[in-house]
């Protein structure tokens, strides 16, 4: 069996990647005090929820062969008005509906422009990113919103020592995995990503599927926003840092998705997001400055993309 694995270059590289990850974790736990302590593990998982949720949405988008640069911006643009309503009236239901509503509107703008007007995803989502960011800045005047109602903050509390957002994230990840891997729709997503023309000729309504995918991605961004706002008890136009977009895309690509479409899976993306979070956590625990962290992350992203390129070489 080992011989067959070694003879297959792709499997060999997969094995090496896995081995490298294990060695990496061992080195980390040896070098960094408290790395494997229960508190830190839970801390990492809690931070994982934001980037992980965005990464799930990005996986869907990358699988159908698109890209969505607007996700972190939509997260803020959707969460801010909902949070404002909630802190003013205390009505959680209306607030959540507004968050999802605004997110879906942005998703629809993306979807219509890409599926119907046939614009290039990169350009469309680039401009919706600017619009969504501007919207969040405009309605808050760059001030943060505080004082969210207690019922909403329930999403940010801990049961025992486990924050409630962690099981929510994993349940959503499992549902996404089932949709992608086990249902007819999942197959269709992959088919569109591999060759859109073939899919259209085979009688699939590709424009409808592409339209829906961008809405799905926006909904993931909204859920990430709700969980983040509940955890930090605030919402604002700088809720997520400006490295979030790069982190999300690299997490999905580390997890096996490809910018040319048709590849990727939820399990890989969750691992990719975990990897990015662990790196940030490692930098924090070692007491390096944020700037050194950027250098480490940049180098790792380039190395990993190069490895991925090696793995997928024909």
């Amino acid at each position: 069996m080992i011989r067959t694995i070694v003879s297959d270059r792709k499997k060999l590289l997969d094995l090496i990647t896995l081995l490298a990850a294990v060695i990496f974790v061992i080195i980390l736990s040896a070098a960094v005090p408290n790395f494997l302590s229960l508190n830190n593990v839970i801390n990492v998982l809690e931070q994982l929820t934001t980037i992980g949720m965005l990464c799930l949405g990005m996986t869907f988008i990358l699988i159908i062969g698109g890209i969505d640069l607007s996700m972190p911006a939509v997260l803020m643009a959707a969460t801010v008005p909902g949070a404002m309503i909630m802190s003013k009236t205390g009505n959680v239901l209306v607030g959540v509906v507004i968050i999802l509503g605004v997110g879906i509107i942005f998703g629809m703008i993306n979807g219509i422009a890409i599926a119907k007007a046939r614009m290039i995803p990169f350009i469309v989502t680039l401009s919706t990113q600017i619009i969504a960011n501007g919207f969040a800045v405009m309605i808050t005047n760059s001030k943060s919103v505080f004082g969210l109602p207690d019922v909403f903050l329930f999403l940010g509390i801990k049961i025992g020592i486990v924050p409630i957002s962690i099981p929510i994230f994993f349940i959503i990840a499992v549902i996404s995995h089932i949709i992608l891997a086990k249902t007819k729709y999942g197959r269709i997503f992959y088919m569109i990503g591999q060759n859109e023309n073939t899919a259209r000729i085979s009688g699939i309504r590709t424009d409808l599927y592409i339209f829906c995918t961008y809405i799905i991605a926006s909904i993931y961004a909204c859920i990430a926003g709700i969980l983040l706002a509940a955890r930090t008890n605030m919402a604002g136009a700088t809720m997520v840092g400006n490295t979030m977009l790069t982190d999300t895309i690299s997490a999905a690509v580390i997890g096996g998705a490809s910018l040319s479409g048709g590849k990727g899976n939820i399990f890989g993306s969750v691992l990719g997001a975990l990897f990015i979070t662990v790196i940030s956590n490692f930098i924090n625990l070692m007491g390096y400055s944020y700037y050194v962290g950027l250098i480490i992350k940049g180098v790792l992203i380039v190395i990993i993309i190069a490895l991925d390129r090696l793995r997928n070489r024909e």
């Binding site: 790069t246 895309i249 690299s250 050194v292 950027l294 992350k297 940049g298 180098v299 380039v302 993309i305």
Partner: peptide, 12 residues
């Protein structure tokens, strides 16, 4: 992707 990585690296 490569230049996105470089972007993070250079800023750092």
């Amino acid at each position: 992707l490569a230049t996105l990585g470089m972007m993070t690296l250079l800023r750092g």
